[in-house]
Every structure is written in structure tokens, then in C-alpha cells.
């Protein structure tokens, strides 16, 4: 939530505590939960899109060119993309899960 909402008094609460702005949960970044980061190797990618379909966190968006783009602000590091990558069948997954410590 924005700092504005944190200072809301009871008079600012919408009737019935309805949330009127769809999808504003995206203001909350879940990337900090991650202990492993998926690192993408475009050379392997056949643009299958499985990573996009299976990502629980909608943290992967597909570029116009058809490649996955990981939004690290949201990626929780579950590793599904690396596991489910079509190319992983051949041991050539597009994603490698790398310890987050290595990026510090």
C-alpha cells in the first residue's frame, strides 16, 4: 500500500471497506522472499511459454518477440520455470536457479 493509505483515518475508509483499484496488490513486491533467482539463458529458449503459463506469481511476462521476461520484483524463486522449461527434458533448461547470495 502507499504511504497515503497508511495514514488513513476512519473517515477515509471506503464504504464497506471496498477496494476500488483493481490489482493494486502489485504495489507489494514479493521479490524479497526469494532465496534462489532464476537466471535466463536465451540461447536455449524455443519460446514455448511454459514458464509463463506455470508461474504462480505472474512474475514472468512474455516479450513481443516471444521470450520470457522475469520480473524480479515479484519472483519468489519457487523454481517451477526452471523445472518445467520444455528444454529441461534435454537437460537444457533456459533457467538456472542461482543462490540469491551471489547477487549481493
Amino acid at each position: 500500500m502507499t504511504s497515503k493509505e497508511k495514514t488513513w483515518t476512519w473517515r477515509d475508509i471506503p464504504v464497506g471497506a471496498v477496494v476500488e483499484e483493481p490489482g493494486n496488490a502489485s504495489e507489494y513486491l514479493t521479490g524479497g522472499w526469494r532465496s534462489e533467482r532464476p537466471v535466463f539463458t536465451p540461447d536455449h529458449c524455443v519460446q514455448c511459454g511454459l514458464c509463463y503459463v506455470y508461474c504462480p506469481d505472474a512474475a514472468i511476462v512474455m516479450t513481443r518477440e516471444g521470450y520470457p521476461d522475469i520480473r524480479l520484483d515479484y519472483c519468489k524463486g519457487c523454481g517451477i520455470c526452471a523445472r518445467e522449461c520444455f528444454m529441461s527434458t534435454f537437460g537444457l533448461s533456459c533457467f538456472e536457479m542461482v543462490d540469491e547470495e551471489e547477487f549481493r
Binding site: W10, I13, A17
Partner: peptide
């Protein structure tokens, strides 16, 4: 709109007062 959300202690009090 989202109706019937859940509230942390940070907001519950204000919602009830309203």
C-alpha cells in the same frame, strides 16, 4: 471492485469505527 477483503490490525479498527 474487491468486496469483503481481510484487514490487518493496522486497518481493522478504522473499518469498524467507520
Amino acid at each position: 471492485v474487491t468486496m469483503g477483503d481481510f484487514a490487518t490490525p493496522e486497518f481493522y479498527l478504522e473499518v469498524k469505527k467507520a
